[in-house]
Design a protein around this nucleic acid. Sequence first.
DNA 1: ATTTCTTACTTGCATTTTGCAAGTTAAAAA
DNA 2: TTTTTAACTTGCAAAATGCAAGTAAGAAAT
Lengths: 130, 130
Amino acid sequence: MTQFRSGCPIASALDIIGDKWSLVIIRSMVVGATSYSDLLSTPEKISTNILAERLRRLEDAGLIRQSQPRQGSIRGAYALTTKGAALIPVVQELARWGETQIPDRWTPPERFYAARPSDFAARDSYPAAD
Amino acid sequence: MTQFRSGCPIASALDIIGDKWSLVIIRSMVVGATSYSDLLSTPEKISTNILAERLRRLEDAGLIRQSQPRQGSIRGAYALTTKGAALIPVVQELARWGETQIPDRWTPPERFYAARPSDFAARDSYPAAD
DNA sequence: ATTTCTTACTTGCATTTTGCAAGTTAAAAA
DNA sequence: TTTTTAACTTGCAAAATGCAAGTAAGAAAT
């Protein structure tokens, strides 16, 4: 259970996702990453223990869920929840800031800026059949 | 000089402001805080060494500047730069997320959501006369 | 049935960051 | 001259981060 520093929505949001990796994970999921190894294979080269720890925290905070558990060598899958998908406008705005204020950043794919929270239809409380 | 994990604008933005305090400081400045003691007196109770370190980093990254140095017991002042003010849509979006997704968060003052980057007119390279 | 491979981690440890509490500095105010 | 104020710095303990190596479970291959 997250301890909040204050009642401020910004400070509280940062108590949940205020680190260098959480929104990077959300970004990767917006553009299609689903499995642990998908998330491991991004350009930023996250460490395995950090990825595991962040996924656990994001799940505990209700932002992602395991839509399919791993079975042996059949890969598992994570999905954004409604609450997690609601962060899409935040990461899109952060992307705009980064593109305009930091030189030589690449432009995200169109599907990133086209993504909307409703694209990630909630299946928050039962596993997917696919 | 910030080391970036990748060329991604989001990851790079987080390399600069991806911690629990930086955007809280930006928020406080959007709603009027200017001095070190203003920033110290927010509900979150930041530690003095962390505040000093964050202010140094934000200044090094070009997001804030010292608009007036402290003179003895005459307080100094920090101001958002153009680059820093460009983060306003990000913190506004984060506030919306926090308000809707985290129970019992207070609503920011109207002047917070009304704020626009252009309100913080750039004086990036010369000190203010006021 | 056994062995190999894949996927998702866990573990140990060194380094870095965070944060508490106390202390310092410089200049204005008394 | 002394006191107060504002903005820090310092020392240290605890927590977080991240590297590299290792483990577990089940599918795939033999």
